[in-house]
Design a protein around this nucleic acid. Structure first.
Lengths: 234, 234
DNA sequence: AATAAAGTGTGATCTTGCTCACAGTGTGTG
DNA sequence: CACACACTGTGAGCAAGATCACACTTTATT
């Protein structure tokens, strides 16, 4: 069991540079927990005092609206981590996290985490570049939300998914491995389920996408299509 | 001249913990530059290789849309800094920065910056908490953009400005010190100038805000008003 | 295999906020 | 002080998406 975590930890990019000694000390500070599907790990506004590293399974990070609607910031999976923000700035949790499959985590408490991280420069700089990447992503997303229409946002999101969740590439078409409902996509894009259905079908008849069961196949032409959408705004 | 920067530097939160020696070495790595109003410092997509600390003046950080519209991420002023993201993750600039007044900066090039920062843990952790705060802000903003209507977004933005740019407090009302055009506000909120004009006038007749010349006075009642807006979405 | 539950498809209608067009009002500069 | 330019105000019409209401299909569950 401990052995298993051990091998996993160094496989995680965040902790990849650690030597055996460092891994052991990290191990001592952490505990492992498993949760079933659809389990709320924390809600936005909660005081936050722990860091989570996903060992297996998937979670959804989302912002909840007053009326029950949600905006999905991201899906995270094995090797990804979350919950560190509240530890660095001592604010409450800024978003909610829920498991979307059964999942197990490596969890580290505030004190231990901060001691450990601030004394391990390589980890510190990794967090810095991770934050930098995330910030870049959210900035771009803000721009999209403010400046693009739903059509373009959906196409962009599909292309993004095709980049990060590819299953296989075959003759200019990629399958998005993740099984997403139209409602999921709507919550990622900031629109309604019905609108997603309509636009997806439009894209289908135009030959830019297709279906493999419930998964979406992205055709190469979708890239060019996005360009034409951008141009038409000029 | 050098003396002047010296005093300023330790006054900047980012470098507040530095001793005289550290300030001197930082000084050696940096140069000071001044630019007129409306000067483009860099555009999104540019390769980024320098860090900017604002010594005086103000800049606007914005994302530009294909059609010339912009989404304003923030206004930064003396003591604030920007441009560090591209240094940490080696990606191109994610947003554009333009001076909104004449302004002077302390500028540090990539190499020097990274050497310096990675060897000064106190600065490193300051960046970490700064990023954390920014990320939190952008996440919240994404939620607002996706889940709230224009009305609520404008009210929220006014309240935010009233918190960060207060001029004076007098009997339950605060003046936003920054002089913003309706177009500025529109670009911060993701709407059009006309809509801002209309909603601002509506808020005025409802007694939640007033004008002092071109500046906006926020009445206490605006807080409660935001709550009723949130409730009406239930 | 039967039944429930979750997800998708689609029309009709309604609403918010955008666009366009122009008038009015400050405000800064030669 | 006048002239221009930037900013604000407001009506009318329009359009993108939201909402509502069901029918239909696929996927789980017993």
């Amino acid at each position: 069991m401990i052995q298993k975590n051990n091998t996993l930890l160094t496989a995680v990019p965040l902790f990849s540079g650690l030597n055996e000694e460092e891994v052991r000390s990290l191990q001592a500070l952490s505990k492992t927990r498993s949760y079933p599907k659809d389990n709320v790990l924390f809600l936005q506004g909660d005081p936050g005092d722990s860091f989570y590293l996903i060992l297996s399974g998937e979670v959804k990070v989302a912002i909840l609206g007053a009326d029950g609607r949600e905006y999905i910031l991201s899906f995270l999976k094995s090797g990804d981590f979350f919950g560190e923000m509240s530890l660095f700035d001592s604010e409450s949790r800024s978003a909610s996290v829920v498991t979307t499959t059964a999942a197990t985590f490596l969890i580290i408490q505030r004190e231990a985490f901060l001691n450990y991280v601030t004394q391990t420069p390589s980890v510190l700089t990794k967090f810095l570049s991770t934050f930098s990447i995330r910030l870049r992503k959210t900035d771009a997303q803000l721009g999209d939300l403010a400046l693009l229409n739903v059509h373009a946002r959906i196409v962009k999101t599909l292309l993004m998914l095709a980049q990060t969740n590819v299953q296989e590439i075959s003759a200019g078409q990629r399958i998005i491995s993740k099984r997403l409902t139209h409602q999921d996509l709507a919550s990622m894009v900031g629109t309604t389920r019905e609108t997603v259905t309509r636009i997806l079908n439009e894209l289908k008849t135009q030959g830019h996408i297709a279906n493999d069961g419930r998964k979406i196949i992205i055709h190469k032409s979708l890239h060019q299509y996005l360009d034409t959408l951008a141009d038409s705004l000029l």
